[in-house]
Each structure stands twice: as structure tokens, then as C-alpha cells.
Design a protein around this nucleic acid. Structure first.
Lengths: 332, 332
DNA sequence: CTGAAAGCGCTAACAA
DNA sequence: TTGTTAGCGCTTTCAG
């Protein structure tokens, strides 16, 4: 009556072999006799058998599931970065026939890694403990978007310093000297590095760094408004803004336009991300710094896979960022 | 040496009780003596013990993980609907201390439900078989966004017919008679129903349905352009467009503006979703139909939870849609 | 190449 | 209230 799932025992009985043979068929088909392989194969199909992942895992096998841990900061589901990472990883895993176990956490640290074969961290923001625990339990893992120098762990990042440098240098090369930087949340490594890149470009070009030109907006659009109001409140004479994300750059444009200023004629803008949602914001193509998120995701999966298969060692990869020139910057 | 995870045996030994007592502590703490409870609690903390979900599940328990299955249609990761559902469900589950197992599939049907206690389907698009299998295996489940009349399964939806009707009626009430409808992918139930709502509103108001006014754009922005080109190619005299999503509505606005037409002065537009990304598209607040996605998500989780706890029966919930009036429609 | 059997960590009778 | 014990479905020695 009950349409229960069939088990390895059912298959073994029906096919007239032992469960060990069925197990071998599942894990290493070439290790059993042709004849048995055919019999088992037929029976598996007939009974629509598929192994219980948890039984398999308990017996020392693999579940075929990777974990993806995403810090649940505010607005994470509106974050281009987070969504691209989920998308990229989901896409690669699918082609590998591996399932995804997504864990988005806020505050608490309750990821139970027991179901997964390995873990990918999409950034580490306040969850160093989680990472440490995973490493301690010897679960293979890879970190994206943060270089964790103090730990023996694989990572995939871009050179955010260079990204910030490129963006700022591009503005400088167009004759801008008074450049505002809207930074992301400085708790986050990539935001700090982009800021450092900005400073470094100024220094190299003998431009004085003005603290009043550096604002922090948490990567969210909401806070950008406040930053811009501050910039405009004093005696402002800046001619360009470099924002640490395209979303923030878009908000800068909106703000400037609401103020009656033309972009880029009166204010040039550079963003970060190459977010397709903002490519053509209010008809302005935003010049931006592209990070190859899909490549990073795919790279992370591959490293993890090899780690799980014990084929490779810890590896720290850094991709180069790329300046994408559109039309939100003019010379002056 | 090896920092292995501690097991229930370690805890039992260390605390001087049997593993059964530890198990009881985990699942029903009030059933053991105060004294033992304290001892076990202390030991659990000391050893940083947490049960292996798969061992638990194999022994007939729960994993504390719900599955969320999302059809991986093109652009799913840019889909407001999909992201809101993930967000809403993630948010509710987090407060319940339940983990999420996200499965986004394309083509193949390889969801292995064995790790989860229950499953939520975010829409059914071409994966009826998956749903049927889950039901057959007696795994508790809930479907969002599609009413599956022919199956005994819980569902949470909105009244999409009514949504389409409201949108169209609003345009008619503003004096529009020539109304284009940009439908979503008609493989998807909600798109069909919105279209029916549109037709019904026209009929009720004695306006003839023109096939040339009905275009299908797959919910994606790309196809909208083609639809609009078609609309404009013939002798067009439509004055309004009702799009089955805000994203598509935004694209309609872009297209019209590129054509040199003013929105809403020359063309009124109504969308669907109340997508905050499009709230203020090119400075135009889009009038739209809101579906309470967060509520739907939360409702789905609650139904599933009760199903798993065997406290409730199959339930089909239909939420009402709500017209949100902004400024993309003018009378004529 | 195959089968028998041990055991992974846990839950849930059952007996005490 | 507690401990003993029999599995849950699978992988993996170890003999044959």
C-alpha cells in the first residue's frame, strides 16, 4: 500500500545479488561483472531506486551536496554580489550533478555542516567562528571575496585594491582632482581595500586626501543619500564620485539629478561591479570596475571539488579586476 | 589529534548517563531529571556537541531542513518573484531555527528529497513529475503560486485573475479603451490567469478584445522590446499598456521614451508585482498590482510545518491582490 | 569479482 | 525516569 521508497535490499533481492554488489554498482560500476551490472541496472530502473543520501553519508560516503554560506546582512537579497554568487555556484554545481545547500544566516551561528561534503563561504563578515569550526572539523572549504591570511584555507577573490586604484586613476586621468569616494561597509574587507586603492591613486598623483571626501554608505542605496547631502552641505567643489558599487553609483546619479546637476557634465561617476541592472541608469552608462563573479564562483567550486576528492592542496586565487568604460565620466 | 566531531557516545560517557538520556535531552529535555539535564547540558557545551543530521534522520528523526525547489527558468536569479520567495522563506525559517535546502533546477529532475523533512515548491513549471514523486513518497509539501487542482496538495497563491482584472479595469476607468497586454510566459499559470483577468475586464466593459494587442514576453525584459516593436509597427492607436510584471512595465517605459513618447502623458502603464526596484523607474512611479509574497512565503512555511508535525490537513490558500496606485496612469 | 558482516550515530520501543 | 538494544540504509573491509 504505502508507496515507500525502495532500498538497496529490495534491489539486491530482486536482482539476485548481494547488497554489496548493488553498492558497488552505485559507486564504481566498472568493478562488477558486466552481467551483474546489467541486472542491477535494470532493477534499479524498475524499482526507481535512488539511495538515501543520509544513509550513504552515515556509512562514510558522500551526500553529493555542497553548502553555500552567505552572511545575511541587510539587503542581502537585493545584493548583486550575493545573487551572482548564488547564481554562479548554482549553475556550475548543476552541471556537476551536485546539489546546493544554501544557508543564509543572521546573527546566530547554527550552520550544521553534517549534510554536506564541503562548504563555500561567500565572504566572511562576522562569522570567522563558523569558518574556524568548519576548518577544525576538517570539512573541505573555500572562501570567496576574502583573503584569510591567518588561516589555512583556500580562497578566491579579486584584487580590490587594484580595482579602487583603477577607478580613481581613470578619473584623475580625466583631469579630476576633487574626487569623492563613497565606500562600502568598512567591516568588509573588499570595501577597505577599494578605499585603500582610492587613496593610493591620489597619493601617487600628488593629490591630497581629504577626509571630508570619504564617506561610508554600507553598500546600500539608502545611506548614499545621506553621504551626498553631507558632501553638498559644505563648500563643495568636487567634480567626480567613485562609489564602491554600481548601486551606490546609481543613487549618486539620482541624487545629483534631483539637485539639478547633470551627469556626467557636472559630476562624473565611476561605480564598481558591472551590475547589469545599473548599466544604463537613467540613460547613463555607468563606467565601472568589473569583477568576474561567475568565474570566481566556478573557480571556487572546482577548488572545493578537488579538495573533497583529496586531489589538491589549499590554494589562494586572486583575479584581476577590469575597468569597463561607459559614459559617466567626462574630462575637465 | 584529529579534531573529530564528538558523538552522542562521547557525551553520554562524559556525563555518566546512557545515550538514550542524551537523545532525550536533545529531543524532549523536559522528560529527564533536572539533575541529568544539567549534567548533559554542560557536557554538550563542553564538547561542542551537535548531532549529525543524517544519523538522526536515518534513525527516523527529523533533519530540521526544509527543501525549496525553484524551477530554473532563464533569468530566475534576476526574477523578483524567485528572489522574494527565497528571501521570505529564508527569513521565516531562520526564526524557526530550520535550515534551508535550496534546489534550483534546469531541465533534469534530480532533486533527492532524502535530506529534508518537507518541501516547498516555488511554482510548478514543467516539473509536475517532481511534485508527483514527492507526494507519492509521502513527503510533506506545499506549492506556491500554482493551484494544482488535480492533486491532493497544499498550495498558497494569489488570485491572479483578479489581479489582471483590477489592473485592466483601472485603465478602463481612466478612459482607456485600447489597451495592450504584455503577458508573461503562458506556460505559467499565473501568466494565463492575468491574461484572462485582462480579457474579462474588457468584456465586462464592452470593449472588443484585439489579438494584436496581446503579446507574450516571457516575463523577461529582452522580449518586451520585440513586443513593443510589433505594437508600434502597425497602425497603432493604443493608449495604455498592462504588463504582467513591473520589470516588463519598466521596459515598456524605456521603449516608449526611446521612441520619444512621454509616459504617462501619451502612454499609461500598469505593472504587476510591486517590485521595489521599479517603484520609481526613470522617475515614474509605476502603478502596479501587489502580491504579498512575504506573507505567502510565511504562510507556506507554516502550513508545511504543521503538515510535518501531522497536525493539519491539506489546505489551499488564495490571497487577494492589491492595486497600488502611483503615477504611471493618466485619464484621457 | 562477490558476499557476509561490522558499524556509521542516532531514535524509539521495551524493560527495568 | 532511565538504560539496553534493535534497527534505519548504506559503505567497506575481509574472506572466499
Amino acid at each position: 500500500m504505502a508507496a515507500q521508497k525502495s532500498t538497496i535490499n529490495d534491489v539486491a533481492r530482486e536482482a539476485g545479488v548481494s547488497i554489496a554488489t548493488v553498492s558497488r554498482f552505485l559507486n564504481n560500476p566498472s568493478s562488477i561483472k558486466e552481467e551483474n551490472r546489467k541486472k542491477v541496472e535494470k532493477t534499479v530502473k524498475k524499482l526507481k531506486y535512488s539511495p538515501l543520501l543520509y544513509a550513504r553519508k552515515l556509512a562514510g560516503g558522500k551526500s553529493g551536496v555542497y553548502g553555500l554560506i552567505i552572511p545575511g546582512y541587510e539587503g542581502v537579497f537585493y545584493s548583486f554580489y550575493a545573487m551572482e554568487i548564488i547564481r554562479g555556484i548554482g549553475f556550475v554545481l548543476e552541471s556537476l550533478n551536485i546539489d546546493l545547500y544554501l544557508h543564509i544566516f543572521r546573527n546566530k551561528d547554527k550552520f550544521n555542516s553534517s549534510l554536506v561534503d564541503g562548504v563555500i563561504f561567500a565572504d566572511i563578515i562576522g562569522n570567522d567562528n563558523q569558518l574556524k569550526r568548519v576548518i577544525k572539523e576538517k570539512i573541505p572549504c573555500v572562501v570567496i571575496n576574502k583573503i584569510v591570511d591567518e588561516l589555512e584555507v583556500s580562497s578566491v577573490t579579486i584584487d580590490n585594491f587594484k580595482g579602487g586604484y583603477l577607478a580613481t586613476e581613470f578619473l584623475i586621468n580625466h583631469g579630476h582632482k576633487n574626487i569623492v569616494h563613497i565606500a562600502g561597509d568598512l567591516e568588509v574587507q573588499c570595501a577597505r581595500e577599494r578605499l585603500e586603492g582610492y587613496k593610493s591613486a591620489l597619493i601617487k598623483n600628488n593629490i591630497k586626501i581629504k577626509d571630508s571626501y570619504i564617506k561610508t554608505a554600507n553598500f546600500s542605496r539608502l545611506k548614499v543619500k545621506k553621504c551626498m547631502e553631507e558632501c553638498f552641505s559644505g563648500k563643495n567643489n568636487f567634480t567626480a564620485v567613485f562609489a564602491a558599487s554600481d548601486e551606490m553609483a546609481a543613487e549618486v546619479i539620482t541624487f545629483a539629478q534631483d539637485k539639478g546637476l547633470e551627469v556626467p557634465q557636472q559630476i562624473s561617476v565611476v561605480g564598481f561591479d558591472d551590475n547589469p541592472f545599473c548599466n544604463r541608469y537613467n540613460n547613463i552608462g555607468i563606467t565601472t570596475v568589473r569583477q568576474p563573479l561567475q568565474q570566481m564562483a566556478s573557480s571556487a567550486v572546482n577548488i572545493l571539488k578537488k579538495l573533497i576528492e583529496k586531489k589538491k592542496e589549499i590554494k589562494k586565487i586572486i583575479f584581476p579586476p577590469e575597468l569597463v568604460i561607459r559614459d559617466s565620466v567626462v574630462s575637465r
